[in-house]
Simulated assay, not measured.
Amino acid sequence: MASAPPAGQGQQGAAAAASPLAPSEMYRNYNFLLRLDSTEVRFTECLGLGMRIEPIRYRESGVGNVVRALPGPVAYAEVVLRYGLATTPDLWNWLKRTAEGAVVRRNVTISQLDNDGATPRINWNLYGAWPCQWSGVPFDALGREAAIEELRLAFDRLDRA
């Protein structure tokens, strides 16, 4: 037989007890900022931040039925940045120089902001980033959406601070 929550707790209190974090401790995914070197750039979306350590599987001699794994090479996912079509040519010029063979590597910081929308709480630093893909605006004469470009960044190393 299930018992009722203690007086004053109600359903809201029971839900909060089941959550590992209080709502004030959880960050919102729309509170983020991106810095290229020391310049702040606003994006509408930032996707694909991740890394994978490839397991190398092997069998020890004498123990043929056990497959063990060692950590192998580290691979970083490409970060996808989506942004509204802007008049500033800075990102386009960076991409164009890369396409012409003059790769300019920049350090990029993605900051998770506190719920106040201003205080950086967690930073992911991408070292040696360079643009590896660009997708233009999908034009549609009947569309009503904002014009959004996409830029993908490859990078050498990632850390969290």
Results as ranks from 00 to 15, higher is better:
Asn65Phe: 15
Asn65Pro: 06
Val66Gly: 02
Val66Pro: 11
Val67Ala: 14
Arg68Asp: 09
Arg68Gly: 00
Ala69Ile: 06
Ala69His: 08
Ala69Glu: 15
Ala69Met: 14
Leu70Trp: 10
Leu70Glu: 15
Leu70Thr: 03
Pro71Arg: 10
Pro71Val: 05
Gly72Cys: 09
Gly72Pro: 00
Gly72Arg: 14
Val74Tyr: 07
Ala75Tyr: 11
Ala75Thr: 12
Ala75Lys: 15
Ala75Glu: 03
Ala75Gln: 11
Tyr76Gly: 00
Tyr76Met: 04
Tyr76Ile: 07
Tyr76Pro: 01
Ala77Ser: 08
Ala77Trp: 01
Ala77Cys: 08
Glu78Asp: 13
Glu78Arg: 13
Val79Leu: 10
Val79Pro: 00
Val80Phe: 00
Leu81Cys: 01
Arg82His: 03
Arg82Glu: 06
Arg82Val: 00
Tyr83Ser: 08
Tyr83Ala: 15
Gly84Val: 10
Gly84Pro: 01
Leu85Thr: 07
Ala86Thr: 08
Thr87Val: 07
Thr87Tyr: 10
Pro89Ala: 15
Pro89Ser: 10
Pro89Gln: 12
Pro89Val: 07
Pro89Lys: 09
Pro89Glu: 07
Asp90Phe: 15
Leu91Phe: 10
Asn93His: 05
Asn93Met: 02
Asn93Gly: 08
Trp94Arg: 07
Trp94Gln: 12
Trp94Thr: 04
Trp94Asp: 09
Leu95Lys: 01
Leu95Trp: 11
Leu95Ala: 05
Leu95Tyr: 07
Lys96Ala: 03
Lys96Gln: 09
Lys96Ile: 00
Arg97Cys: 07
Arg97Phe: 09
Thr98Cys: 10
Thr98Val: 02
Thr98Ile: 00
Thr98Glu: 08
Ala99Trp: 02
Ala99His: 04
Glu100Ala: 12
Glu100Thr: 06
Glu100Trp: 04
Gly101Asn: 00
Gly101Val: 04
Gly101Cys: 00
Ala102Val: 08
Val103Ile: 12
Val103Ala: 13
Val103Ser: 10
Val104Thr: 12
Val104Arg: 09
Arg105Gly: 00
Arg105Ser: 00
Arg106Gln: 13
Arg106Glu: 06
Asn107Pro: 11
Asn107His: 06
Thr109Phe: 11
Ile110Ser: 03
Ser111Ile: 07
Ser111Val: 03
Gln112Ser: 05
Leu113Cys: 08
Leu113Met: 10
Asn115Arg: 14
Gly117Glu: 03
Gly117Pro: 02
Ala118Lys: 10
Thr119Met: 09
Thr119Asn: 05
Pro120Lys: 02
Pro120Ser: 07
Arg121Val: 15
Arg121Gln: 13
Arg121Phe: 08
Arg121Asp: 02
Arg121Leu: 15
Ile122Val: 13
Asn123Tyr: 04
Asn123Gln: 01
Asn123Leu: 08
Asn125Val: 15
Leu126Trp: 03
Leu126Gly: 02
Leu126Gln: 05
Leu126Cys: 09
Tyr127Gly: 07
Tyr127Asn: 13
Tyr127His: 12
Gly128Val: 00
Ala129Thr: 04
